[in-house]
Nucleic acid binder design. Structure first.
Lengths: 131, 131
DNA sequence: ATAGTCGGTAACAAAAACATACCTGATTAT
DNA sequence: ATAATCAGGTATGTTTTTGTTACCGACTAT
């Protein structure tokens, strides 16, 4: 008995939490998994070439290319092109990139500390809720 | 003159960076944008109902439902159901959820501090690289 | 009677992420 | 000659994530 548009619809009514939106923006920008892993690698090794990153992370050429371009565009990574033969391109963190390393490694440490707890919580949840 | 499989293929050769993989796991679990925003909201307000969160974040019902379920499963959020009429469901952080709040707000603060810089970097990049 | 609240779910559409394979051009190593 | 290296670009698909819309039951307020 669907009489059309009589029932309530779910509009999005975001108005509050002004900061949340902006945090949201940044998180969607640098919050994907490859970006963070690239930043972690660069912060550990200082400077890395394209294929060094590729080998370290097990990322595909295409995703690495896209990820580095995004990070460079956002001012987190600096790219240096040496027109030698074969070509040599080096990537390193900018100042802003380095400053981002701190909150990121905070998350990383927490992750390492709590992985086991999370796994256990999952098991318990899956048992009680059961599927 | 393509003779088939003679040319090099792009294999993925991930072997190094043992920690990266595990950090990756947590980041893919709680690293999506809604999870972090839910955690931030709960840490600020203590306890929130479903629709309160929905209004605060401007998130769709479905995404909030999925996000909360994931967070509950991972042991970061606790759900209390009051079978009143209308029903009342309250969400709050667990102990582990609270411990996660610190690294999360570190990211949040960084995001707020650096949004403008990122925007400027983008502009500059778009101009020099041009489209 | 009709619309609204509450906390969701199911079905579907759109978008983003990711994978796979192949291409370049100059050069070196085999 | 042939293959390999370097740093990607491009084309095409698949898979995952995200968002939209409608719907539920049980009640209240108009």
């Amino acid at each position: 008995m669907n009489l059309g548009h009589t029932k309530g619809t779910d509009m999005l009514e975001s108005k509050e939490c002004p900061d949340c939106k902006r945090i949201n923006e940044v998180l969607t920008r640098v919050g994907d998994r490859w970006s963070l892993l690239v930043i972690i690698s660069l912060s550990e090794y200082g400077t890395l070439r394209f294929n060094e990153l590729k080998r370290n992370l097990g990322i595909s050429q295409r995703m690495l290319s896209l990820t580095l371009k995004k990070l460079e565009r956002d001012g987190l990574v600096h790219r240096t092109y040496h027109p030698t033969i074969p070509p040599k391109v080096e990537y390193k963190l900018t100042q802003m990139g380095k400053s981002f390393r701190e909150p990121v490694s905070a998350i990383g440490s927490w992750a390492l500390d709590n992985l086991i707890k999370i796994d256990k919580a999952r098991e318990k949840y899956d048992v009680t809720v059961g599927s």
